[in-house]
Design a protein around this nucleic acid. Sequence first.
DNA 1: AAACATAGTATCCTTTTGGATACCTTAATA
DNA 2: TATTAAGGTATCCAAAAGGATACTATGTTT
Lengths: 121, 121
Amino acid sequence: MEDHSNCTIETALEILVGKWKPIILYSLFTNGTLRFSELQKAIPGITKKMLTAQLRELEYHDIVHRKVYLQIPPKVEYSITEYGQGITPLIQSISEWGQAHVKHLSEIYGDNRILKTETTE
Amino acid sequence: MEDHSNCTIETALEILVGKWKPIILYSLFTNGTLRFSELQKAIPGITKKMLTAQLRELEYHDIVHRKVYLQIPPKVEYSITEYGQGITPLIQSISEWGQAHVKHLSEIYGDNRILKTETTE
DNA sequence: AAACATAGTATCCTTTTGGATACCTTAATA
DNA sequence: TATTAAGGTATCCAAAAGGATACTATGTTT
């Protein structure tokens, strides 16, 4: 860690933080391209307002691309940008660490829903 | 990314997210062990309430250790746990990606305070 | 003429997060 | 006896994030 790594960390976190960002990214990464309404269906419980807001933030960060078809009724497609693909290893790292951490927490505090992966004997 | 990586990502993020967590961790990583009051001095602007709250969360996650000396006036020392040391590579990754991303954003939107690192010619 | 489809906004409200300030404890000290 | 030190809590308030609901635009279909 260098001197002012805090702000760069916080910048990085902006992309993942927000109630719905991880699942939006997950949906787009696994499905490639989705329309607004398809995202809504893929993410139960999200409102239009939140979906729009989070997508706009991701768009600002050049992680998500928004393609508008000028037709009626409207059609808008969302996808991960080429630059956005580059975030995959980071998400992977975070996800893996998170998985190990969930396990660590369950070892500390004792949790009934322990996934017995290699603690079988 | 696997099926329900979202929750593990969010669990991982809990450790970094919060107004003061990154700088608290940075202070402890670089200084080793700090008393409550030393942390307060090291982090300008933070209130006791916030410092306590964030430290308690980090303690819950077994990232930070809290050592209480039973004396008066009180003395409490905070440090990174051994388990907590293991988060270093993750923080490193996030920080590096964040740094690159700040640069990417400045390339897209044009920013006066571009750090010319390898774009010198 | 009314209803429909799609991708949003606008408005209002609730919850969560963060911050300011005062207060507490207890032994040693002035 | 009043202060001080250190590490907090308690209380109250402001700001930010999130959510429910209604409304808009407009060409096509009924």
